[in-house]
């Protein structure tokens, strides 16, 4: 676990850039975007204790909320936890203060992507990008193509080879993608998509 940096507010926040309005703290920004009030958190740690993935995280979910409350933008947007979270909502359903923690994670991920910070778990964003490439092309997810593309990106060709072959043998991975007829309607939607070339 990394040592927390001293309390620091960035001078020009992306919120300021976008809206021209100063003064909104990171916590208020996250509250606005996620629609959930994370000021209610009193660090009971129910979320951290219940999260099935907490062992692979660098901060527990309650620590992530704390970083947000402290305004530690860079620290929280570049952490691993927000990428490891799959949105299973165990935390949200266990929180005694009804904070939808999973939707805070959603918001933080989007902010990390939009602000172009160093991604805490790059292989996961590689995977999401690969899925989006497939969606852009076919309108539906072509799993074999996604897995091959992901392997190309990460260079780990042998990892999981046995499982892949087993799935092929069971015909669970279709060679030919299922696709949308009017695929132009789909590709048009990808104009908004944040590009790595940027």
């Amino acid at each position: 676990m990394s040592i927390a940096q001293p309390l620091r507010h960035d001078v020009v926040t992306p919120y300021l850039e976008k809206t021209g309005k100063p003064g909104l703290s990171l916590a208020a920004e996250v509250k606005e975007q996620s629609g959930t009030d994370l000021f209610r958190c009193y660090q009971c740690r129910s979320c951290g204790n219940g999260c099935p993935f907490v062992q692979a995280m660098d901060y527990t979910p309650n620590q992530v909320l704390r970083l947000v409350q402290f305004g530690m933008r860079r620290e929280v947007l570049s952490c691993k936890t927000i990428w490891i979270c799959v949105g299973c909502h165990t935390c949200s359903s266990q929180c005694p203060m009804s904070i939808d923690i999973a939707s805070v994670m959603d918001t933080l991920r989007l902010m990390a992507v939009e602000e172009g910070v160093a991604i805490g778990k790059p292989n996961i964003i590689d995977f999401h990008e690969e899925v989006l490439r497939s969606l852009e092309k076919y309108g539906r997810a072509h799993k074999l193509g996604i897995m091959l593309g992901y392997k190309r990106q990460t260079g780990r060709w042998l990892k999981d080879l046995d499982v892949g072959l087993k799935m092929l043998a069971k015909r669970k991975l279709d060679l030919i993608p299922s696709r949308v007829r009017d695929v132009k309607e789909i590709t048009e939607l990808f104009q908004c998509y944040w590009r790595e070339s940027a």
């Binding site: 799959v86 959603d106 989007l110 992507v113 999401h128 989006l132 969606l135 539906r140 939607l189």
Partner: peptide, 22 residues
């Protein structure tokens, strides 16, 4: 008729507008 992917976690992660539009 001619349905497309719901957007999945990946669109949800990368772009809110895209996820909504899909």
């Amino acid at each position: 008729e001619d349905w497309n992917c719901c957007g999945s976690s990946s669109a949800q992660t990368m772009c809110k507008n895209l996820s909504l539009a899909m």
